[in-house]
């Protein structure tokens, strides 16, 4: 006989079993992240892609579907290609400089720490300070430092040795170099922190084994350090690339894209199209191009580094 009580007990037990099975499933654990990603990343992304196929504007209520018109317009705009070139130069130099300088700094600090030398904490903190200052401030600081008269700190110093004043922000080439230098000054900290973290994970015993195996300094770096840093370098390069491709604040404050369009990167262009010309559709199409560029480069790195096993 089944009493009502035992039926209730049994259904409770069944409920508990379902609950337990649910907790064993990865989904409940992934759900919060998935929801956040969907609401704050995926939805805006889809919306931007959709917007890029319209002529939506901030000032006109009429929005029409215009197909690939915005893309066709970009493709035929010589200025767009020029901006793409500037962006590419900026991003490529940034990646190379950030990662190389970050590696050098990280190796120096790691060496200092392992040797028990003084000053490594000061170095780390001061490099990190550059990173935590907002880009817009950094842009302004550099703008002040690069003022093209004796009142600019750098031109003043150059003046002391009889050079200048140098047109850091009014000469097209120098302006681009200035943005790259300012960006590197700021961004190197990030690479350094990442790579330093990676270096600390390299077991000391591998270096000892390599020393006993007869590997000198360079060979230990080449055959132990670099392979051990591979996955960290991969992540760093991907993040620095994305960061550099999307740089907006620093350039906005330092040169505003000028002189002319010599430092006009895509992120700046997107901002101007969408919020100065109020053409959301055009801005969205640039955003989509940037997204594709980011994805494509990440794919290239993934292939080049062959880190599938480690990530």
């Amino acid at each position: 006989m089944t009493t009502p009580d035992s039926t209730t007990d049994r259904s409770f037990a069944r409920l508990r079993a379902v609950g337990r099975r649910l907790l064993d499933h990865p989904l409940p654990w992934l759900a919060p992240t998935l929801v956040l990603l969907a609401v704050f990343q995926l939805y805006p992304m889809v919306e931007a892609v959709l917007m890029s196929f319209t002529n939506e504007s901030l000032v006109s209520p009429d929005t029409e579907f215009v197909g690939i018109e915005q893309y066709a317009r970009l493709a035929t705009d010589p200025q767009f290609w020029e901006m793409l070139r500037v962006t590419a130069i900026y991003a490529f130099s940034s990646v190379v400089l950030h990662v190389l300088l970050g590696l050098v700094l990280a190796l120096a600090i790691d060496y200092g720490v392992r040797r028990g030398l003084r000053g490594h904490l000061t170095t780390r903190v001061s490099v990190l300070l550059a990173w935590i200052v907002p880009g817009i401030i950094i842009g302004l600081v550099w703008k002040v430092m690069l003022v093209e008269s004796q009142f600019g700190a750098i031109n003043y110093l150059l003046g002391l040795v009889g050079v200048g004043p140098v047109p850091f922000r009014s000469d097209p080439t120098l302006a681009l170099i200035s943005t790259i230098v300012a960006g590197t000054w700021r961004g190197t900290a990030f690479s350094m922190i990442m790579i330093y973290g990676g270096l600390q994970r390299v077991p000391q015993r591998l270096y000892e084994a390599a020393r006993v195996d007869g590997a000198g300094r360079w060979n230990r770096f080449r055959h132990v350090t670099l392979p051990q840093l591979k996955s960290v370098l991969f992540v760093t390069i991907v993040l620095v690339t994305i960061y550099a491709l999307n740089t907006f604040d620093l350039i906005f404050a330092l040169t505003g894209g000028g002189p002319g369009r010599s430092t006009q990167v895509l992120a700046l262009f997107m901002y101007q199209e969408a919020f100065q010309d109020n053409a959301l559709g055009r801005g969205a199409s640039i955003a989509v191009v940037m997204l594709v560029a980011n994805l494509a480069l990440t794919a290239v790195y993934l292939y080049a580094f062959d880190v599938s096993e480690e990530i």
Binding site: R205, L206, V212, D213, P227, K230
Partner: peptide, 20 residues
């Protein structure tokens, strides 16, 4: 330097190069 000493060593945790 260790390489000039003509010794070879086996470490407690082997210390094999993981990427090789």
């Amino acid at each position: 330097e260790p390489e000039a000493r003509n010794t070879a060593m086996v470490f407690q945790n082997y210390a094999l190069y993981p990427h090789m």
